[in-house]
Design a protein around this nucleic acid. Structure first.
Lengths: 220, 220
DNA sequence: CGACCCATGGGGGGACACCCTGAACGGACC
DNA sequence: GGTCCGTTCAGGGTGTCCCCCCATGGGTCG
């Protein structure tokens, strides 16, 4: 790879996970072929650390708290300027298709579930650093499927705006319009507008179908 | 505590989690007041290790794979013979009331979310070893609530009549009153009556909570 | 600069959800 | 036979859901 820094030098890594214990585990289990140069437990810390340290690879927990849904993706969207220089490898307990696809779409170069060993994660980091895309074996199949048929199957979600996603998540959980409005500091009428847009874009009839739709995709 | 072994001796711990990296993190972050004498990544390994090693405390991930729902609880139910000798401290990423309550019901003496630091988890282990019940601060409130009404809360489902169950299942799936009435060959008004009875008996506010209640219990 | 999308919010209205009271019938239990 | 409960249904009311219309301000894109 022409982008590789000094051959033989360890790959620099920043670890992002809200669980301090898991970060410690990574630092203990990643072997000497990589070097952990920083860590972060929140979205803010992560964005700051990545911009300052410019690691070769970021090991990113998809389920960071903070963003209304999937704070890990927020780190990605706020680091787009660095996407050419820094590679992101997503770490997640979930292997739900929706999570994987949307994370890749946000710019991650690989996706590994947390059941992997330190050795396996090290291997994945190195391959991502070299430009490969890496997926846990049992994810590889449907990731390819997803991107073969993604234009139809999945882009329903991509058509929702950020605010519509906020509203959709709360409504799908059973919040009333009034509760949703209070939670998001907007008027009930605005919630109605967003819900109508969501139902129209997703081609659903009512909030019950929305709940099931979201549950099927594990968006709750 | 009269049950305490040698005063000053470190508390023995077995770590159960399907993520090897997280186990490493625990071993690295738990301080010298406890001693990790074994670990396991599956239900089978855990049951075997606990029976053989007889640790003072088991740090148990609730979300082990294997059991049809929450394999961690399976470890508890298969170790009941040791519950007097070995204390279980549940570790989970979830702070959902349902998970917490059912885990405590299965015999765990505490419940800590994985966002806790190594120091906090060590403290929790020591307190459980001494006989205390330990909960993450924001869990403490509703755990007490849940157990104030626990004896009643259990047989809620048994209190529903046959017809109420019929109606409840359809409503929980998102059927409207009208659709439910048609399906069961009764009037909309009768459906209303049954739904009201169900909501009252289960102490739920509306059909959305009913949907979640039923989903949690896998009644759908 | 105009076209377009997004986020915000309002008026109004039909349909539905949920609650209250009340009532009729039948079966079960003592 | 009286009492309780489950099942059936009604009238009437309030609040929520979801739709239609509309408007304003901001951002992006060509």
């Amino acid at each position: 790879m022409s982008e590789a820094p000094l051959p033989g030098a360890p790959v620099t890594v920043v670890v992002v996970d809200d669980h301090a214990v898991f970060r410690s585990g990574l630092k203990a289990d990643l072997d000497e072929r990589v070097r952990v140069v920083g860590e972060a437990g929140t979205v803010e810390e992560a964005v700051t650390a990545i911009a300052a340290l410019r690691p070769r690879v970021v090991l990113l927990d998809v389920h960071l708290p903070g963003g209304l849904g999937g704070g890990g993706r927020e780190v990605l969207t706020r680091s787009t300027a660095l996407l050419g220089e820094v590679r992101f490898l997503a770490l997640s307990v979930s292997d739900a298709a929706e999570d994987v696809v949307s994370t890749i779409r946000a710019g991650a170069r690989g996706y590994v579930t947390k059941t992997a060993s330190g050795r396996e994660i090290t291997d994945a980091v190195l391959r991502v650093a070299e430009g490969d895309a890496v997926f846990s074996p049992r994810l590889a199949g449907f990731v390819l499927d997803a991107f073969g048929t993604a234009s139809v199957a999945d882009d329903e979600l991509g058509k929702l705006s950020a605010r519509e996603l906020d509203v959709m998540r709360l409504i799908a959980r059973g919040y009333t319009y009034r509760e949703t409005a209070k939670e998001l500091f907007i008027s009930v009428k605005t919630v109605e507008t967003h819900v109508s847009a969501v139902l129209r874009k997703l081609q659903l009839a009512n909030r019950h179908e929305l709940s099931r739709w979201a549950a099927d995709r594990r968006i709750l």
